[in-house]
Structures are given as structure tokens and as C-alpha cells.
Design a protein around this nucleic acid. Structure first.
Lengths: 185, 185
DNA sequence: GTCTATACATGGATAGAC
DNA sequence: GTCTATCCATGTATAGAC
């Protein structure tokens, strides 16, 4: 699909009629494939995620995340679309709501699975802590991109690396504490 | 101004005509006070910031930030508005662009000033590091609120405290290293 | 099934009267 | 300063050709 073409180049107040003409189609020709404009926009995000699949070990994932964030600098339109849809997803009825719920659950699971691939199963307390940390890292990635839209001089990748560095230290320390406490009991 | 009333209660696809009727005005009556709808929305954000002024020591500021984030849970419409405008500010011509630039500069300065209120002046390297950390913390706050819009069960305040805790440790360690290196030279 | 053409409702913006 | 009236763009829905 050439859906992304227009969105990559620039998502502003792009109307469906402009999209249609860029695809050498008429308005209804476009609407035949989508339930609504919002649905179209969300599907663009879905396709981007499909391209940016994440896998591998935690270290590989974090490197991949940094790559994706850096690559995003070439498609500000998609970043703006992502942020806009996140706001729209405040309404549970909006198609973006389902998208973000699925996405968050998927990312959380990927992170969890890879972290415990070569480790013994975690305690419930450990798992809860790791979920919180993962959500924090993902939130920072989102927030940095949001700020980058406003100020393109912000170093998204560098700041993420700063966060990951300090998070690794803190997490290792915390998990050791938790395990020691569990061993005592 | 009773501008916020409608925005606090719920910013969705609220039309200016609805806003006007809530103010017992006509559409043109509202437009008399604002350059455009976007201008109105940005001014709502400005007024919110005026209410949520931040001051005091770093510790007080962080407590205040947590309070504000917690309080934000009662006005999801304003959070959604903030996120939406951040995306719109990707266009430098949009009125939100100036707003966010001013806001970021102000927050950065407030943080810097209070941190060095009772300390010797920092080196350029130190300052750069602290700016990066501050931006990271602010980005996480933004990102958490963005995610909270989608999933209201997310613990924004708790996650922020988690971040601040580990950031304090890492920052102290980093600054000591920088100062030791400076003392060597 | 896939597309074109058209009609309709709504929203933002503007002009001009009082 | 506020109103009425109007204009234009846009999202959405429908009818119908191929």
C-alpha cells in the first residue's frame, strides 16, 4: 500500500481528498478501504509497527529501539501522527484506543520474555517492578519524541541511552535486593 | 475567563459554536477574542501553566511536580489538549510552537536556578549534563501522561518517583566524577 | 467488488451591520 | 464588542456505473 507515502512526507491537516489525489484515486476510492479517516490513520501506525518489529535479547532490543528512534527523525509526520492518535485514544471508542492497548501489551510482553529467556522465572514482586521500569522507559521514549517535534535539536537517542544506563544500574541493584529478601524468607 | 470551564470538563471535538453557547455568545463573539481556534486552545494551556507555577528547592519542585501530575487526573481533557498541541507544534508556524519553546526554556531555567541556589557555579560540562537529565525527566512526565490517556490504570506519580529516585543516585555519582576530573586538571 | 459522482452536515473563518 | 449572514473546506453517506 502506498498509504504511508503521504504520511511519511508530512502529516499535517492532510485531507482525505488530497490523499486520494496523491494515490491517483477519488475520495470514495480511498474510503472503500477504510471505515473512516481515523481508521486510516491508525492503520498507518499499525503498518509502521509491522516494519519496526523488535526482537532479540534485551541489549539487542535496546539497540534496535535506539535505531528506530534515530530513524524516526526522517519521518516527523509519522511521529506527529502517533502523538495525535495517543491523545485521541483518550476516548475508549476511538479506533486508536484498541491500537495502543494492543501495542503496549505487546511491547511489555516482548521485553518481559526476552529478559527472562536465560534467567529463572521471576517472583511476582520482581515482575511488577520490571513492568514499571519498562513502562517508564517506553514513556520516556514517547515523551522525548513528543518534545523533539517541538524542538528538533533535542538528542532523543542520546537521552535514551542516558536513561538506559542509569536504569540498568538501578534495576540490577533493586533486583538483587528483592532476591536477597526472598532468599531470607 | 470562563475559557477553561469547557476544556476542563472535556476537550473532545468541541466546536467553537458549542463553546460560544456555553459562554452565552455567538461564534463571532468568541472569535473576537482570539485569532483562531488554535490560538484559543494554546491560551488555555498558558492559563493552566499560570495556575501551576513551580518554585522552591529541587526537592520542593519535584514534590510539586508530583502533585500537579496527580491533580491532572481530574482533567483528562486538558492532558489530551496538551498532547495534541505538542503534535501540532511540529509546525513552527503553529501558535503552539512558540508556547512550547517558551515553556521548555522556562522549566529548564527554573530547575537549573534552584539546583545551584546553594551550590558553587557549575562547569559547562556539569551544566550540559544537568540539562540533559532535566529534559529526560520532563520527557518522562510528558510520556507518562500520554500513556495514561490511553490506559488510566497507569501510575503516573509512582513511576515518576521511581525515575527520580534512580536519577538522583546516578546524577550525584556522575557529578562527583566530573568534579574529581576537574580537580585533577 | 471496485470505483466515480454527488449530496449533506458540520466546523472554522470572514464581512458588514448595529 | 457583539451579532447575523455567508463562504469554503472537510468528513461522511449514498447512488449507481463498470
Amino acid at each position: 500500500m502506498a498509504l504511508e507515502v503521504f504520511a511519511v512526507e508530512g502529516y499535517r491537516g492532510t485531507s482525505l481528498r488530497k490523499v486520494a489525489s496523491l494515490c491517483d484515486l477519488s475520495l470514495a476510492g480511498v474510503m472503500h478501504y477504510f471505515d473512516s479517516k481515523e481508521d486510516l490513520l491508525v492503520q498507518i501506525l499499525r503498518e509502521r509497527d509491522a516494519r519496526n518489529e523488535i526482537s532479540g535479547t534485551i541489549e539487542e532490543q535496546e539497540g534496535r529501539l535506539a535505531d528506530i528512534l534515530g530513524q524516526g527523525h526522517h519521518e516527523p509526520g509519522l511521529i506527529a501522527l502517533y502523538v495525535t492518535m495517543a491523545a485521541a485514544a483518550a476516548d475508549p471508542e476511538h479506533p486508536a484506543a484498541a491500537y495502543f492497548h494492543e501495542r503496549n501489551a505487546r511491547l511489555l510482553k516482548i521485553s518481559e520474555d526476552s529478559y527472562y529467556a536465560d534467567k529463572p522465572a521471576p517472583s511476582a514482586e520482581e515482575l511488577q517492578y520490571l513492568h514499571a521500569v519498562t513502562r517508564m522507559v517506553l514513556a520516556t521514549a514517547d515523551g522525548l519524541q513528543q518534545q523533539w517535534l517541538v524542538d528538533r535539536s533535542i538528542d532523543v537517542v542520546g537521552t535514551m541511552k542516558l536513561l538506559m544506563e542509569q536504569t540498568h544500574e538501578a534495576t540490577e541493584r533493586k533486583l538483587e535486593t528483592l532476591r536477597a529478601a526472598a532468599a531470607d524468607a
